[in-house]
């Protein structure tokens, strides 16, 4: 059972990591705790559902949903945060604005679409599972783990090896200085918003597919856990988010398997509280980061 539980944990952990990637990018570069991220997650899932309902295969529905979710993110970022950036409001103001916006968006979404769980049409994804010795891994699970790893690698190399990435890192360090150095900060911010929105949307599609459940509030529970994960991984640290996501996923599965499923839910949050006491910069963060 241990092997299968670790597989379960790695799959769930990849889903968390996939979700946390865009969140930590947004925080790392834009310096904003953006709670609307969970909304992009749900938007992505619903858009893919719509596309799949119209007969699109998953290979089309997934990128389409991701791109549209990215555009939604750019628009929301513009509406909610430009004013606060201009007035140099404290970071808590942006947290509160996105909190209010999230409440509004979730409730409006469930008022419009109903709060019932929706599911993708059967057969959108191959239902088959590979037997690896005694273990079972489904196509959906491979898709999730694979996408999480690929996207983290892609993001790390984007940040490390391209001009845009360089500009993003500059912005993350100091937005005034990078502006003076001739970086078009507005354009970079839009790109980061788009990218993280698209990542959130893609995560929504894949996780909605794997657990076959889409609901307006699906992002809320995920966002809470996502924040625990990005703090564990060190705020803004992409590799850290991946590692922390996998860690939480595996620990949850092992807790459910060997201790009790009762405590599964609390694992991530207990880890977070411990981290804040012992190592507030995160398990993988640079020391001294983000002190007041």
């Amino acid at each position: 059972m241990l092997g299968q539980q670790i597989i379960n944990g790695l799959v769930a952990g990849s889903a968390y990591a996939l979700f946390a990637l865009g969140l930590t990018l947004m925080f790392g570069v834009l310096g904003v705790v953006n709670l609307t991220y969970g909304f992009y997650f749900a938007v992505g899932a619903y858009l893919a559902l719509l596309a799949a309902g119209a007969g699109a295969p998953i290979a089309l529905a997934l990128p389409l949903a991701a791109i549209l979710a990215g555009l939604v993110a750019v628009v929301l970022d513009f509406l909610l945060l430009t004013r606060l950036r201009r007035t140099r409001a404290p970071e808590l103001a942006s947290l509160m604005v996105t909190l209010g916006a999230t409440l509004f968006l979730y409730s409006a979404m469930s008022a419009l679409l109903g709060s019932e769980i929706r599911r993708f049409p059967a057969g959108l994804l191959d239902n088959g599972a590979f037997a690896l010795g005694a273990y079972r891994i489904s196509v959906g699970q491979i898709l999730i783990v694979g996408t999480a790893v690929l996207l983290s690698l892609g993001l790390v190399s984007l940040m490390g090896a391209t001009r845009t990435g360089l500009a993003m890192r500059a912005l993350a360090e100091n937005s005034d200085a990078s502006e003076l150095m001739g970086v078009d900060t507005q354009a970079i911010m839009r790109r980061v918003s788009f990218l993280s929105g698209a990542l959130g949307g893609a995560a929504g599609v894949l996780i909605g597919l794997e657990y076959n459940a889409i609901a307006p509030y699906m992002g809320e529970a995920m966002t809470l856990k996502g924040f625990a994960i990005i703090i564990l991984g060190g705020l803004g640290n992409i590799g850290g988010a991946l590692a922390a996501g996998l860690l939480v996923g595996v620990l949850e599965a092992l807790t459910a398997g060997y201790v009790s499923s009762v405590y599964k839910e609390a694992v991530g949050f207990l880890l977070l509280v411990l981290t804040l006491w012992v190592r507030p910069q995160g398990l993988f963060g640079r020391p001294g980061a983000r002190r007041a």
């Binding site: 059972m1 299968q4 799959v11 699906m218 599965a253 398997g257 499923s261 839910e265």
Partner: peptide
Amino acid sequence: TETFGAKDTDFSAQLTKIKS
């Protein structure tokens, strides 16, 4: 005796244990 939360969509850990 295994449990889940109202918003859970991932039941794999519980079911793996039960199956074993």
